[in-house]
């Protein structure tokens, strides 16, 4: 019983004490990133798995993704306060996934504008109830509707945000990783915050459109960037080289699934046979590959 009591106390204090300052690295002048971990969101990591961070201008700060739970959002806010005295003026959500948006509420304040893809609010509305439910079950995180904060500024194609002497160029993409992917380009340091359009080491997850994703990669690949910040995996300084494994994986899915459909095979068979040659090359392959085949198959079935 005493052990149980101690366990309870440690659990309780873990969730109630002040949030710690999040560790961040300055990957380019004024660009700070907290690197996530390659884990499935669960009740131990509480969904804090993605790369998140912020960019500091002369006037103010733009947060780029807020973390996988409200507490990580608070930790990120503390990291910003430890780094600069400038206020946060924008919170940019790169897409709807929980590991990128659940820290939003920590930044809700007068003078802060939330920014997202024009389809982000809809995605939040249609997924929100389910996500709140799952957060309790799967992350051991208590969320309410107030934690899901839709954008004040919706980006349709492109938008420039001025942080004072520093312009962030935002691009809303077609359906790719999700149907609401937004990337952020920092002109000053030639850094592209590509978020979940790029997975390194962690298996890419398709929750939008396989064909759309490959098309967006083709466009992005034709540009040179000094630094690229993926949503999952290490910082990239050899773009587009580090993107090739992701592209190869997605292209392999496209080819093999199209072939299955042409042969009159069903989704259930595709899930068992397509793409297993890539298994050794990725973390979390067993957790996400079958889902990828499922989503891609349903999309490709409607070609022609």
């Amino acid at each position: 019983m005493r052990l149980l009591f101690a366990l309870i106390l440690s659990l309780a204090s873990g969730s109630m004490s002040a949030a710690p300052v999040l560790s961040v690295t300055e990957v380019a002048p004024g660009v700070y990133v907290h690197l996530g971990v390659h884990e499935l969101p669960d009740t131990k990591n509480h969904g804090a798995i993605a790369n998140i961070g912020f960019i500091v201008g002369e006037r103010c700060v733009a947060v780029i993704d807020t973390g996988g739970n409200p507490r990580q959002g608070k930790s990120l806010k503390l990291a910003i306060e430890h780094t600069t005295s400038k206020p946060v003026c924008y919170v940019i959500n790169t897409h709807v996934h929980p590991d990128h948006i659940y820290g939003n509420k920590a930044f809700k304040a007068p003078g802060v504008q939330f920014v997202g893809h024009q389809k982000l609010a809809r995605a939040m509305a249609t997924r929100g109830l389910y996500y709140i439910d799952k957060a309790a079950d799967q992350l051991d995180v208590k969320l309410t509707a107030d934690d899901i904060i839709p954008p004040d500024i919706a980006v349709k194609d492109h938008l420039d945000l001025d942080l004072g002497g520093r312009t962030l160029k935002l691009t809303a993409h077609r359906a790719a990783h999700t149907d609401n992917d937004l990337t952020v380009y920092d002109e000053r340091t030639d850094t592209l915050w590509i978020s979940d359009l790029l997975f390194i080491e962690h298996l890419p997850v398709i929750d939008g459109s396989l064909k759309g994703w490959l098309a967006e990669l083709k466009t992005l690949e034709s540009h040179a960037y000094k630094t690229v910040i993926p949503g999952h995996g290490p910082i990239v300084t050899d773009w587009p080289k580090s993107m090739q494994p992701e592209k190869a994986y997605l292209e392999m899915l496209l080819t093999e699934i199209r072939d299955m459909i042409k042969q009159g095979k069903y989704m259930e068979e595709a899930v068992e046979t397509v793409g297993y040659s890539a298994r050794g090359q990725w973390r979390l392959f067993d957790e996400f590959h079958r889902k990828n085949v499922t989503t891609a198959f349903a999309e490709l079935e409607w070609e022609n």
């Binding site: 929980p98 809809r122 359906a175 997850v205 759309g212 999309e299 409607w302």
Partner: peptide
């Protein structure tokens, strides 16, 4: 068993399905 991932029980690309509606 439920999925442990980040997708929700709706559909990945709503607009694509809307455009083909009825096909």
């Amino acid at each position: 068993k439920a999925s442990g991932g980040c997708s929700a029980p709706i559909g990945a690309d709503l607009d694509a399905a809307m455009q083909r509606l009825g096909k």
